[in-house]
Design a protein around this nucleic acid. Structure first.
Length: 552
DNA sequence: AGCCTACGCGCC
DNA sequence: AAAGGGCGCGTAGGCT
């Protein structure tokens, strides 16, 4: 599908299994209506250049919710990774140029909101002048199908591309739908913590009062928002801190430290999620963040604006279902260790994962029942932490769960040597810049050299990448399955939030059980698709609640 | 004034 | 001896 540069029309062409055109290109004066018609009749997999440009326009004009699509730009990014050509531009124009051995155009920055009101401008795809958008789209898409088939695991890559593309559909839909946000509940929270709402652009009085009391305690006029001023002030009291981080302040036995911590907590809520935040991001009872699919190299999403992926627990009571509705909150607890267990096939870790609380079972099995230590040991294995007691715990992990440790340590060694690693479905880690890995043959180095440290750091990144990116594989597959299963229930329930290993569905009360069942089924479907016959369960805990704060 | 980095903290 | 993954975003403070 190729939209016209201006207006609401576009062109369509039916493609065969191998991506070649079946029949002629046809024009549609009302593209959205035509897409809706064909979607109802045939449920095709729509091929287009970029979901985040096309789909919002379609939704504006028709209530069409395509079942499937192939997002050429997102797929291009996945394929460039597969082919270890990370640094190449991803636009349709660049892909088209590569296909024809032409010089690749650099991908210009995405157009901003204040650009001219051109709807479906082909030049956004950086195509050479005179190139027909439909010709380029068909050729690049067919080339992508061939590249998928030629890769090391075509079925896995096909699944990854489908899940990434389905995620792009869901991202646009969730961005439009928004997360139900109660201004009244938010106000109750804010006034309880900060006092009455201050005039716009000013801070609550309580923050100023706390700052004054801090200054009295410290004996000089300091700005509590300035670590550079607070550090010497605490040093004069006899507390030489290395930073003003909260974990360090918590061990300072002085009333000023407690007050400072409370000040930080409150000032942060005011600055990051206060009244001004709500004015910017909440409209009509909905918080509408913009999701950025593929915004993180591991496949996790990012968001633009509003900090949607960091809603403080404290503020979750402001996320409230509409009257007669419920929020089905679902999260995959202990996802990353379960992914490690499934990928590595480690029998001991798989046994622990089957027990329900993975950390508790791990503790019973290998850490004398000490759950906190078991958790630290496992996190150390996945993150590469070796300081403190983590080093000893890691030794226990290595002895008892050799296959799991072999997987992450192999990934770390690959990264240290400048190599790339892949997720379960084949998302590839980025190539390190030359100064981030170590050529051992050129520089055996000593253990503490800057080069060595940079290499270790990159090794920790690749070590974590295999886990985090495979967890994202699962989460995307789950989201895609859930979106389809919810669509089968009707126009509602609707997905309203997605964050790494957690989804929220907004549903009429009577459909809450069906939504919960859809969540469970989607999780199971994703587990089977991504990890095959693994015995490791990846349960999704669901709660049908009125307020997000009631879950967990 | 706008841009950048450092710091700190929220989430996973 | 030391060696903790991924983000977004706000303020401070230095720079141009």
């Amino acid at each position: 599908m190729a939209p016209d540069p201006v207006g609401s029309g576009g062109r369509l062409c039916v493609l065969g299994e191998d991506g070649t055109a079946v029949g002629a290109v046809s024009a549609a004066p009302d593209l959205a209506a035509e897409v809706a018609r064909r979607e109802a009749e045939q449920r095709p997999r729509w091929v287009w250049a970029a979901t985040d440009e096309v789909y919002p326009r379609l939704l504006e004009r028709a209530a069409v919710r395509p079942d499937r699509c192939h997002d050429v730009k997102l797929v291009e990014s996945l394929l460039l990774g597969q082919e270890l050509r990370h640094r190449r531009p991803r636009s349709l124009g660049a892909a088209w140029a590569r296909l024809h051995d032409l010089p690749e155009p650099a991908d210009a920055p995405e157009p901003g909101a204040d650009d001219q009101p051109v709807l479906f401008a082909a030049d956004r795809h950086h195509l050479p002048p005179g190139t027909d958008l439909m010709d380029a789209l068909i050729a690049v898409h067919a080339g992508q199908l061939r590249r998928i088939a030629a890769g090391p695991h075509p079925e896995r890559m096909r699944l990854l591309c489908a899940a990434e593309s389905a995620g792009a559909l869901a991202a646009v839909e969730m961005g439009r739908e928004g997360l139900p946000w109660s201004a009244a509940a938010h106000d109750d929270l804010l006034t309880g913590l900060l006092g009455p709402r201050p005039a716009p652009g000013t801070r609550p009085a309580v923050l100023g009062e706390m700052a004054l009391r801090l200054q009295e305690m410290l004996g000089r006029p300091v700005n509590p928002d300035s670590p550079a001023q607070m550090l010497p002030a605490f040093a004069r009291l006899g507390f030489p801190l290395t930073s003003t981080r909260s974990y360090e302040l918590r061990s300072v036995d002085h009333p000023a430290a407690a007050l400072f911590l409370r000040y930080k907590e409150l000032s942060r809520i005011h600055a990051a999620h206060g009244w001004a935040w709500r004015e910017s991001w909440v409209r009509g009872g909905r918080f509408r963040p913009e999701y950025v699919v593929g915004g993180v190299v591991s496949g996790r999403w990012a968001t633009r604006g509003g900090g949607a992926l960091q809603i403080p627990r404290l503020l979750r009571s402001a996320v409230v279902a509409d009257p007669g509705y419920r929020l089905v909150v679902a999260d995959a607890g202990q996802l990353e260790p379960r992914v490690l267990a499934a990928m590595s096939g480690d029998p001991g870790l798989a046994r622990a994962a089957a027990a329900g609380d993975l950390y508790a079972a791990l503790a019973l099995d290998a850490f004398g029942g000490d759950r906190p230590r078991a958790k630290i040991g496992l996190l150390a294995a996945m993150y590469g932490q070796t300081s403190g007691e983590a080093g000893q715990l890691l030794a226990v992990m290595r002895r008892r769960f050799p296959a799991a440790l072999a997987l992450v340590e192999s990934a770390a060694r690959t990264g240290e040597a400048g190599g790339t690693v892949r997720s379960q479905l084949g998302r590839t880690s980025p190539a390190p810049s030359a100064d981030r890995f170590l050529d051992e043959s050129a520089d055996p180095g000593d253990g503490a050299s800057p080069d060595r440290r940079a290499a270790r750091s990159w090794g920790r990144f690749t070590r974590n990448f295999v886990i985090q990116a495979s967890a994202s594989d699962w989460a995307l597959a789950m989201l895609a399955a859930l979106r389809r299963r919810l669509a089968a229930l009707g126009p509602e329930p609707r997905l309203v939030f997605f964050q790494h290993d957690e989804v929220i569905v907004h549903t009429p009360l009577e459909l809450a059980p069906a939504a919960e069942a859809a969540v469970a089924a989607a999780g199971e479907e994703a587990r089977r698709l991504v990890f095959g016959a693994t015995p490791v369960p990846i349960p999704l805990q669901t709660h049908a609640v009125v307020s997000y704060a009631e879950a967990k």
